[in-house]
Design a binder for these strands. Structure first.
Lengths: 347, 347
DNA sequence: GACTGGCACTCCAACCAGTCGAGTGCTAGA
DNA sequence: TCTAGCACTCGACTGGTTGGAGTGCCAGTC
C-alpha cells in the first residue's frame, strides 16, 4: 500500500526528473525536498514504488525514473494545477487581442499554446455554426465537375466537388439561381430539406443535374464536427531532447495525416478540472507511445471542440495542464460561448 | 587547370559520397569507377581538387567529400539529368489521375514530389486567375469588422477582413447588393475601377461604409502572385541523417514561417533545362546553409509559379532534378498551360 | 611530363583495463 | 518502523594500445 510519504517520494522523483532529465537517486531526493528521513528510508520506499510499477531503473545502481503508470498517479493524485503566472496571463491577453474571425482566433491560439508550453500545439476548428446559409456558388471546373461553395452567415466557407452531367455556363447559372432561391436564408438542415423537395418536383433531366449539388450541400451541412485542425510549434519538437529523437518522425507523420491528430484529440473526456491527459502508451496511436497529450475542450457557440499539446512524457504536467486549461477557457470566451465550469484559474 | 580526368574524379567522388555518406578514398574510387589509373594518380588529382576548393577532408588521412563548390561544378558541368524510370513516370500519372480543381492539384503535387524524391516538397499556389468575379459576399463579423469574400469564375475563394463603421444586417445587405451589382462579371481590375467610380458618386456616409470594402477587394485583386504554399513530406526530414540533425529545427521554423519558403522558391531563375539548384550556403536564408533547394517553374493559365524540394546538400542531384522538372511540366500541363521548353523527358 | 609503386606518416575507431563515484540492497540495531 | 553502515554493482571516464584506412611524397619508369 502506498502511504503518504511514498506518494510524496513519487512526486519528488517526477518533479526532479522532469527538471534534470536524469535518473534521480535517494540522496539527491532528501536534499532537494526536505524529506525528514534518511536516504535509506527513501530507498526502501523507492523499491516499493518500483515493485508496484511506478518507477523504474535504467540499470542497477542508477537512480529511478517514473514509468507511465507513475506519471499517471502523479497527474491524478498529486499534481495541483499551478496557477498561471501574471506574465502568462498577460501573454494570452495580448496574443489574442484584436483577433477577428474564426480562422484568426484558431491560428493565434495554436501559436499561443505552442509558445507558452514549448510543445506542439493542436487546435481543432469549432464545428461550423448551424447558422443560416448566406450564399451558394456553383462553379464549373471541368466537363463533369461542379465546385459547390457554401457561405454561411458567420462567414464560414465550405467547398465540395460534385460530379454532375456536363453543363454549359448558362445551365450552371440557372442551377445556381434556383439553388440560391431555395436555400439562402435557411439553416443548412432545412435548406437541404427544401432542396430535396424541389428535386422531387423536377423533371428527370433537371433532377439529374441538381441531385449531386444537393448531395454536396447535404454533406457540408451534415459535417457536424469540424475535421480541420491547425498545428503550431512544430519546430519545438526538435527540442524534445535526444531520448525522443525516435519520436519526431512518427509525430511528423501524424501531423501530416491530420486524421491521427483528430483521433488524438477526439476522445477528450475531461477528467480533471476540464483537462484530459494521456500519458505514453495510453494514447492508442502506437508510434506515439512515448509522448503525452494534454488536451481540453473549449466551447464555441456551435458546440465544443478540442485543443491541446503533444510533448514528451517527461513534461511539466502541472504547468502544461494549467496553460491548456486557461487557453481553452479564454478561447471559449472569445468564440462567444460560456465554459461550463467555473473560472478558478483566475485568482 | 582541371582536365577531363579531374572532372571525372570529382564526379565520382560526388556519386560515391552521395551513396555511401562516407568520405571516399582513392582506392575505393578506382575500384568502383574503372578509372584506368592507379590510386596514387587519383590522389594527386584529389589534392589539386582540394586546393581549388572542390573537395575537402574532414581530417587528414580521411577520404574526401565534396564542398558546396564541388557540388556546384558537378551540377553545372557533370550532371546529366537522368531520364525518369518507367515506374516514376507511371507514379506521376496515377497520382495526378482524377485531380480536380487547383487545391487538389497542388496538394497532390506536394505529396507526389515528396514521395518521389524522399525529401521535403514545396509547391507554390499559382497566382489567382484574372478571371471575372462571380460573387462577392459581405459578412458582419463584429461591430467594426466586415469579412469580404470574393469568389472568382475559376472557383478560387479569397477572404479579407475590412474595418468598417458599424452597420446592422440590413445595411450590410444593401452594401452587398450594390457591390455585387457593380462588380460581378467583371475582371478584378475593372471591378475595382467601377467600384471606385461608384464610391466617388456616393454621399459621404455611404462612402465611409463602402470604402474599406473596395479597399479589401482591391487588395485581393492586386495580389498578382500567390503567397500561399503547400508543403509535403515533412516526415522525410527525419531521415536526412545525423549530420543534418542540426537542420531540422531551422527547417521546421522555415516551414512554419511560410514567407521563408516563398523566398526560397522565389528567385528561381532557371539555369539548366528549367531546373534551378541552390546548394548549401548559396541560398541566402542563413539557417539553411547546409541544405540544397532544387526548384523549377511551372506555368498555370494565370502565369508561372514555383515548386521544388529541400534536402541535404548531399543529395542525388541528377534524379532529383529530373523529378522536379518532370513534375513541374506535368503540373503545368494539368493546370491548362503549355510549358515553354520542349518535352525531352518523354523518351 | 605523366603515371606508378612503395613507404613513412597521420589520425580515427575500436578495444581493453583500471578507476571513480553514484546509487543500490541488505542487515543489524535503535 | 526507521536508520546507519557496508558491500556490491554498474556506468562513465581515462589512458594506452592496436589496426587500418588513407594520405603525401619521392624515386623510378614509360
Amino acid at each position: 500500500m502506498l502511504d503518504d510519504r511514498k506518494l510524496e517520494v513519487l512526486g519528488a522523483v517526477v518533479v526532479d526528473y522532469v527538471q534534470s532529465r536524469e535518473p534521480v537517486g535517494s540522496r539527491a531526493l532528501v536534499e532537494r525536498h526536505r524529506l525528514d528521513v534518511s536516504p535509506a528510508t527513501i530507498r526502501n520506499d523507492m523499491a516499493v514504488l518500483e515493485e508496484d510499477g511506478y518507477l523504474t531503473q535504467p540499470h542497477t545502481s542508477a537512480g529511478r525514473i517514473p514509468t507511465d503508470k507513475g506519471y499517471r498517479l502523479f497527474v491524478d493524485k498529486l499534481a495541483s494545477i499551478k496557477p498561471l503566472s501574471g506574465a502568462e496571463r498577460r501573454a494570452i491577453g495580448s496574443f489574442m487581442q484584436g483577433a477577428v474571425g474564426v480562422d484568426d482566433v484558431v491560428a493565434r491560439t495554436a501559436r499561443l499554446l505552442a509558445q507558452l508550453t514549448h510543445q506542439v500545439a493542436i487546435v481543432q476548428y469549432p464545428a461550423p455554426a448551424p447558422a443560416e446559409l448566406r450564399h451558394i456558388e456553383l462553379v464549373r471546373l471541368t466537363a463533369g465537375h461542379l465546385l459547390v461553395i457554401v457561405i454561411r452567415a458567420t462567414g464560414e466557407v465550405d467547398q465540395r466537388v460534385a460530379e454532375c452531367p456536363d453543363m454549359d455556363e448558362a445551365d450552371v447559372a440557372v442551377l445556381r439561381h434556383s439553388v440560391n432561391g431555395v436555400a439562402t436564408g435557411l439553416t443548412p438542415a432545412s435548406a437541404v430539406l427544401e432542396l430535396r423537395r424541389l428535386l422531387a418536383a423536377l423533371d428527370p433531366a433537371g433532377a439529374r443535374r441538381l441531385a449531386p449539388v444537393v448531395e454536396a450541400i447535404a454533406e457540408i451541412a451534415g459535417a457536424s464536427t469540424s475535421e480541420r485542425v491547425v498545428v503550431g510549434g512544430v519546430p519545438n519538437l526538435a527540442r524534445f531532447g535526444v531520448e525522443y529523437e525516435a519520436m519526431i518522425e512518427p509525430l511528423l507523420e501524424a501531423i501530416e495525416e491530420q486524421v491521427v491528430l483528430l483521433r488524438l484529440l477526439g476522445e477528450s473526456a475531461c477528467d480533471k478540472d476540464g483537462v484530459y491527459v494521456r500519458i505514453g502508451a495510453e494514447n492508442e496511436y502506437g508510434p506515439l507511445r512515448e509522448t503525452s497529450v494534454v488536451s481540453s475542450v473549449y466551447s464555441s457557440d456551435s458546440g465544443p471542440a478540442s485543443l491541446g499539446v503533444v510533448g514528451p512524457t517527461r513534461m511539466d504536467y502541472p504547468s502544461t495542464m494549467a496553460t491548456v486549461r486557461a487557453v481553452a477557457r479564454y478561447v471559449g470566451r472569445f468564440l462567444g460561448a460560456q465554459t461550463a465550469s467555473g473560472g478558478d484559474d483566475e485568482h
